[in-house]
Amino acid sequence: MRRQIPLMLVLVLGIFFFIQFFVPSRLSTNIYQVSLQWLILISAFAIVLAIGSLVNHHLLKIKRRREHWPYSYATLAGLVVMSLLGILGRFPGLGLLDEIYYRLYLFVQAPMDAAMFAILAFYMASASYRAFRARSKEALLLLVSGFFIMLGVIPLGALIWDRIPDIAEWIMMVPNMAAKRGILFGVGLGITATSLKIILGIERSWLGGGGK
């Protein structure tokens, strides 16, 4: 029963919402709108799993004094402070907390986010040296395409040769578009096939060991 009830729920809801798309009535649209709110609400609680796992990992690390354990306090403090300020700050009379939350986002989270991705520019440069060595026709195409796109979006490209931005745009609009469309077809078919497998109960990995 532990497996049958969830599988039955998936089947009934999946078929219902698949058919609902093709029913052109106000009732059907209203059901869709309310269900969408339900879906957003239920999925919001799923973050509990992620946060629970993160907290558990760091608490264990501190408890067992694993390598670099003192840094786990920074993670836990950041998590607690940021989430409490973000949640409590929205309540009336606690505007100061919201102000601090906003400042923390602007001067702690956003700069670290940008800096973390910015250092990847250096590593991508060294990775591209290894990847872009034109050892085959295919690697040469990758190199040429990447080269024109990089030069095409900066003013230096147009200074070297005024047709470089046009070539970059052509690469984006013709061969790149063709490849992306082909891949998108595959993704679309993959999503459809996986959804059908889940609805029909063929794909059951999401049940994990919980149903045993």
Binding site: I47, A74, L79, M82, S83, G86, Q109
Partner: peptide, 13 residues
């Protein structure tokens, strides 16, 4: 480590 915690907290909020 601080970035991980702050980002997760931001996500929760």
């Amino acid at each position: 480590h601080l970035f991980v915690g702050v980002s997760a907290g931001y996500g929760v909020a």
